[in-house]
Amino acid sequence: MNLKELSKQEERLESGHRLCPGCALPMIARQLLHSLHGEPVVVGCATGCLEVSTTIYPYTAWKTPWIHNAFENVAATMSGAETAYRVLQKRGKIPKDKKIKFLAIGGDGGTYDIGLQSLSGTLERGHNLVYVCMDNEAYQNTGIQRSSSTPFAAATNTSPVGKIKKGKEQFKKDLTAVIAGHHIPYVAQASPHNWVDLMKKAEKAFAVEGPAFINTISPCVPGWGYKSDQTQEMARLAVDTCFWPLFEIENDVWKLNYNPGDKKEPIINWCKHQARFRHLLKPENKELLDKFQAHVDERWEWVKKQCGK
């Protein structure tokens, strides 16, 4: 991935969208689009921040064909579009050599929660499309409510820190492992701070025949509560604390793409920059922090084991 060469490519997500300053979503979207190197692509978005902020009528930031249907059905919607492409090509209504890629994008709400069934069905049916989850770990678009992706102990407006309850009581759902259970050709976890890794994964995902899934960590300035210039850093810390391991599963073979080794940072290094975890810094909540750390370590060991490490 040569950034100098990539910077000569056309931008297919235009300026003028109304995502928050420092939002990770357009960073990821741009990396995905650039990984296609100008190949035609149809993009579908589930309802969410990326969708509403890039297409406020009568404006659109998308220079690709783009569709939004509803919150929970971007996978099914794109499965329909991809099927239309196949049948229209079969029937000679589209030139046989015209290649079109299909990219479905959902947030964690639209992917881990309300859209999981639609996604699972689409993967099981084997449609030739790439699904990318941009996981900002809560329903940020509706005003920061907890999702099944929200990390343990994180405060949201539906899992607030009160006198009795201290943020979310459950651990984050391991969606990537759930998707891996579909045994599709390509599954990966990626982060926008490591664009080389993310874009390589996107290239692989677009290249395989059949469905591919990439889960990306997408730091959220207002939802996580950090300074807008720290988005890249929050993504890095999610990876270097091993909260968000970078790995890929090609034809059921797990591979770890990044191991911080001795440089693995404690989870507090990530938490301390974020308002949603502010309560974890208090001595009386040390138990929660320890529980969070223990869970992160346990998951990290599990991922390493899957990857034969």
């Binding site: 149809v42 579908g44 569709i67 249907n69 509803a70 059905n73 099914a76 919607t77 794109m78 499965s79 329909g80 579009a81 991809e82 099927t83 239309a84 492409y85 229209l88 209504k93 639609s118």
Partner: peptide, 10 residues
């Protein structure tokens, strides 16, 4: 949903 996607694709 798939009907909408397919129909939008012509």
């Amino acid at each position: 949903s798939a009907a909408v996607g397919a129909s939008c694709a012509g």
